[in-house]
Each structure stands twice: as C-alpha cells, then as structure tokens.
Amino acid sequence: MKKIIYTLLFFLFTGSMFAQSQKDFPVTEEWLEKIEALLPSEPRVQAPVRKIMVFSQHTGFYHWIIPHNDEMLKILAKKTGAFEITIARDIDSFDKKNLKQYDAVILNNSNPSGPDRDLFADLLKKNSSLGEARIAELSAAYEGNLMDYVAKGGGLFIMHGAITVQNNSQKFSAMVGGSFDYHPKQQEMHLKEVDSGHPLVQAFNGEGFTHIDEPYFFKNAYFDYNFRPLLYIEADKLEGKRAEVDNNTIYVAWIKRHGKGRVFYSSPSHNAQSMDQPELLQFFLDGLQYVVGDLPADDSPMDKPE
C-alpha cells in the first residue's frame, strides 16, 4: 500500500511539472539534497575505487537532464566512496592515452545532430577548420579508440539518448546492442524486469518501474539480440508507435560483452523527475558496478525470439 501511495504522489507531482516546462527544473541545492538522501549509501560489492569518465557533451538534441546526471553521479561517487568521477566535454577525451586511465566511460545523453548522427565528426566540425576528408578520418579514429578501449576491458555505460553517439555505424551498433530508431511522445510507462532474479534488477523487487519517459524503439544490431535484456515495455500499452512490434516486447535496458569489456544501456534517463524513485538510482549504481567488473551478472546473449 505504501508503494502504491508513493507512486500516486509521484505522478501527481511529476504530472504538474511536465505540464509546466521540463526546462524549468534547474539543479538547485534543494534538489541536490534530495538526491543525496535517495542515493544508496554503499555499493552492493566493496571494491577498489574506480575511475569513471562521464562524457556530457552533445551537438544535437539537448537533454535537459545532462547536468542533473552529472551532479547525481558526483554525489553517488562521494556518498559510496566507490568511484572518482571526471566530467569531460572535449573530443580529446577519446584519445587512447586518456581513455586508459579510466575503468569506465559514461556517455551522458551525448546526442549528435542528424542525419549523420556522428558525434565525433560533429565536434571536429564545431571546434576545428579541418576539411571533410580529415574530419571523417579522425572521427573514425575516435570511434575506434572507444571501441578498442571497451574490447580491451573498459566499461561503457550509455544513458538514454547517448545510444545515438555513432548511430549510423554498424560496428558501433554491434558493440552497444543497437541503434536508435524513433520514439513516440513522452508518456507514462511501466517497465518490467525480464528476469526478476537477475542481480542487476534487484532494485525493483519484482515490481518493475513506472515513470514518464520517451519510449525508445531501436534498429540495426538490436535485432541480433546480442545482449542480455534487463527491462522491457509492452508495445500495446504505448501511444504513437509507427508499426506493430514482434512479440509485443521492446527492451529498454540491457547488458552485453564486447571483447573483454562490458556495456550497460539504460533508456530510462530522460527526465530528472524519474530519479525521485530510489530504485532507479540503485539500478544505475548496479549497472556501473557491472561495467567496471565488480558486480558479477549473467551477460550471455538472449535467445532470439522465434
């Protein structure tokens, strides 16, 4: 009953916030104090302090939650003592030498512009006077650096829109588990656990997670199902989808291996109000511990739907 009452109050509050303006939700001291109180006090697994680079630059659609995520992750690092967080925005952050000093990289809603959907090329165009051929060459090199970093054992945590970082690259799509296709309007969604016994969804206690967000649909490597799904939504419960969905299932969070490294994707992370539910914050912490290799979890690929 307590959970039901909390959920109702959450949606009454967030509903009014959405009716105003999502952009009228600044990072305030009051919000920081609330998030600090909601965040877990310690990680599930005690381990050495891990160094994390949070890349929070974008060139396309700006997700207003970017600064909220930055602050949440900094508080999480301090409160648990499990991480050292570096916020990065420069493309040189993806130099091989720089990447080597980190245990994991978080891509924080790092959306590139369309239709090319190439964040590295966008940043080079914006911050240099290089010609198109050289930009294409360097962009491919930065993409390769990130992919090699993961293949050699680095962790990669992708938040919501950052799945578009190299959205038209088939190689990148294969590494992260898919590419962004489209999303209908924001709406209330009930995310359900694929396997309530999986260690990375313990936070939801078998009850799933309900919030307001963009329901993402995916393409490219997504249909290889070369990942271990964690959360899904039911297509027939959504408004505005373009076509019917096989098996009525859309996976919105998953983990997977890439070489010696680990990848965690979480579509939930569009609205800061979602973090009012501590289950999501615990889910983020567990995912981060997974990608740095501290929280063991079954990440074998799922069986393809028939």
Score class of each variant (00 low, 15 high):
residue 208 G to D: 05
residue 209 F to C: 05
residue 210 T to L: 00
residue 211 H to F: 04
residue 212 I to E: 01
residue 212 I to P: 00
residue 213 D to H: 01
residue 213 D to Q: 02
residue 213 D to G: 00
residue 216 Y to R: 02
residue 217 F to T: 12
residue 217 F to Y: 14
residue 219 K to Q: 11
residue 219 K to S: 08
residue 219 K to L: 06
residue 220 N to H: 05
residue 220 N to F: 05
residue 221 A to V: 06
residue 221 A to L: 03
residue 224 D to M: 01
residue 230 L to Q: 07
residue 230 L to M: 05
residue 231 L to K: 03
residue 232 Y to Q: 08
residue 232 Y to N: 09
residue 233 I to T: 10
residue 235 A to H: 07
residue 235 A to I: 07
residue 235 A to F: 08
residue 236 D to W: 05
residue 236 D to E: 12
residue 239 E to T: 15
residue 240 G to K: 05
residue 240 G to L: 01
residue 241 K to N: 06
residue 242 R to E: 15
residue 243 A to P: 00
residue 245 V to W: 09
residue 246 D to V: 15
residue 248 N to I: 11
residue 248 N to H: 14
residue 249 T to K: 15
residue 250 I to N: 13
residue 251 Y to T: 13
residue 251 Y to C: 11
residue 251 Y to S: 11
residue 251 Y to L: 10
residue 252 V to Q: 13
residue 253 A to H: 12
residue 255 I to E: 03
residue 256 K to Q: 12
residue 257 R to S: 12
residue 258 H to G: 00
residue 259 G to I: 08
residue 261 G to S: 09
residue 261 G to M: 09
residue 262 R to F: 11
residue 262 R to Q: 15
residue 263 V to P: 12
residue 265 Y to C: 00
residue 266 S to F: 12
residue 266 S to H: 07
residue 266 S to R: 00
residue 266 S to I: 14
residue 267 S to F: 05
residue 267 S to G: 10
residue 268 P to F: 04
residue 271 N to D: 14
residue 272 A to W: 10
residue 273 Q to L: 07
residue 274 S to M: 15
residue 274 S to Q: 12
residue 275 M to F: 15
residue 275 M to N: 14
residue 276 D to F: 14
residue 276 D to I: 07
residue 278 P to C: 10
residue 280 L to D: 06
residue 280 L to E: 07
residue 283 F to V: 06
residue 283 F to H: 08
residue 285 L to Q: 08
residue 285 L to F: 02
residue 286 D to P: 01
residue 288 L to N: 03
residue 289 Q to H: 03
residue 291 V to H: 03
residue 292 V to R: 04
residue 292 V to C: 03
